[in-house]
Design a protein around this nucleic acid. Structure first.
Lengths: 215, 215, 215, 215
DNA sequence: TATGAATGAGCGTTCATTCAT
DNA sequence: GATGAATGAACGCTCATTCAT
């Protein structure tokens, strides 16, 4: 792994652990055992590091969240889907903890973020229309929009919200799985009998995951 | 108004406007036309100011969100209820934009926050059980818990989420009302015919508010 | 003397001694035995310190170089005149050693500098027209302009030029007096018999000064 | 052209354009498309580059300013003379803008500079004595010394002085020619009738040059 | 109560220079 | 000859906080 990538990952690690405002470029360099000058050899400034982290995040989001025909069909692949998204959010959780501040400092990043959000929204809508076609949910277009917004908001706020509840506690996978369960609990009342089946399967899976993780 | 209170309100104003990390104690003092020394005469440190702001917030939350028997009955008082809560969040919106960071610095505040959250949860549960008794919603206990959690999360994340979407734009009342509408859209699928009536009334009210505010 | 003024004078001293680019704000603070924070309490930044030094310089220049009717008549007051100007340049000599660089960084200062130069030019012209009226020099208007430009250039370049010749040697008063003699040697060929008398008197005075200062 | 020479010329170009203190060794390397390591393979340090630039300058000065018997006779060759000197100064103008600073850092360079100045002085004296012999000027030895000093000072300060007047404006050839005119205006009052003829010819030539260059 | 000068650790960043390859 | 990653001291500057008055 190249130094540049190591910096990105060290920064991500420290940002997640201590919050971006509390991590200085000198901290990152010291943590890695390199000089501050070397860090600035690879990045123009701290902002650029954050930028690059975001790019990695957005790239992964694109890849992981690519809606596929088959994805919607089996509850198995749906499961991988949810897993992937929440894990992604967990790996870049520092970002969610300071989003307004980080974005207000960097209008280019703001633009990229909005783009990513827009893509995400489209993908969620695609997946959900697919569900409707399959008869898993029964919603009109407006309700679908509302649901997509709620899901986006809940998903992207989950980690920040949980962190606020217990900042000292490390965010564990169990917390992530509870987030998925929260999402499922929002969807459940909107499903058809057939859809409910799928949701219940997923819920039982994640309940087990939480139980395993806690113990 | 005493200097101490003036400091609290000046700080709140500046925090909301520029974000807590971007407001120094000297800014606050300069904005008020007092000396930094005087500010520190009234408060041991910046943290204590935030602490006091939180106390005011929690106090107001307690008062405004006191569930009353009659409140649940008329959609009119329910409306005042929702209004009050969202306005409260708007007046203390800086808090929501940096919650994890602020809490991680101050464990006493963290404790108070959890207390307040717990109270809020109980109150929401009380109100919703009342709704159920009145036949407005049809949910079992577990669904009620889930819903309460979702509502709490959506409500408390709304402003932060919207700020991230458009940091340059000031948060207007219209944005707040859209938050209420989002909440209502989550509740709507869970209502009985009778409950739906109430929700629709509220929705039309807030739609009008948004329209009025935008123009 | 207030700290603010002490900073200005400490900065001036260090700038003159070591050159402005080689003097950091921390050097100034350390030299004075104050903290860097205190320095920045009194000045927004290094540029502002330079700005203030220039203001003091320009102010003194205005006062000292105010052409007065009687000034031109006696070689005695002319002498004080020349003394004052060169001493002024000596006290702010750091400025002359880096003028292009300093001005290119600060367009407001650039503007003030041009203003000061313009005033100086007018004053020199006034004095010299006076000389002409008194029959001390015999020059047409165009020659007068040329002479004024030459004198301004020689005077304002003198210290910088001498510093280049011997950077290690401190600029002494003798060097200053030699500058005055250089100026006089430019004027001498342009004088009438009467004017030559005055120049010779001045030259002999400054020759003595140089001799006294060297020994 | 060897890399070593390319570095010298790239550095000269950048120094002239942006001022020596604002040009880093990395800038120079990047501008040339070579690595910083390569630059330091050819030069021990930044100082050495400046040193070499000075050597080229001094070398050219020696060549161009070699006083020749015939040079003094025709105003044509005198013209080439003046042109050459001012152009030389223009090509190495960065040097004049920071002379005291540059020399104070490097005592060896200081020594070379003084040597060059001494040579220049001798050459100017030779030329001017020649003029006297030809009856173009009427000056005693002491006046000749004074004049030589004035001319040296005016010539070597011209570009720095003009840069200070307008740092944003690039120094054009017109500015250079105005410098020559300033020099001529100093000499003019000291000429014989015959000498004045020559000066007037030169002045009209340079006036035309300035006019051509400005338009 | 209030002032405002003063503190000092630490921030993000720069840049002449080195060195293994 | 050449690369380019790496160094580290130092820069200009910030800000929560203190304290004599």
């Amino acid at each position: 792994m190249k130094t540049r990538d190591k910096i990105i990952h060290a920064a991500l690690e420290l940002f997640n652990e201590n919050g971006e405002p509390n991590v200085t470029t000198n901290h990152i360099a010291a943590h890695m055992g390199i000089s501050p000058g070397n860090l600035y050899y690879h990045f123009r400034n701290k902002e650029e590091i954050i930028h690059c982290i975001f790019d990695e995040y957005a790239q992964e989001l694109r890849v992981r969240f690519q809606p596929r025909e088959e994805a919607a069909l089996s509850s198995d692949s749906l499961l991988q889907y949810l897993d992937a998204v929440f894990m992604l959010m967990w790996r870049y959780r520092f970002f969610y903890a300071n989003l307004p501040d980080i974005l207000s400092r960097d209008s280019e990043l703001q633009h990229k973020y909005l783009q990513a959000q827009e893509n995400l929204h489209q993908d969620i809508m695609t997946v959900m229309r697919h569900f409707r076609t399959l008869g898993l949910v029964t919603l009109d277009d407006e309700e679908l929009q509302s649901l997509a917004n709620t899901l986006k908001l809940v998903a992207s706020s989950w980690i920040c919200y949980q962190t606020a509840q217990a900042p000292q506690a490390k965010i564990t996978k169990a917390v992530i799985y509870q987030g998925v369960l929260q999402i499922l609990s929002i969807i459940r009342p909107l499903t058809s009998a057939q859809g409910r089946e799928v949701v219940l399967q997923l819920e039982s899976h994640y309940c087990n995951q939480v139980r395993r993780d806690v113990s």
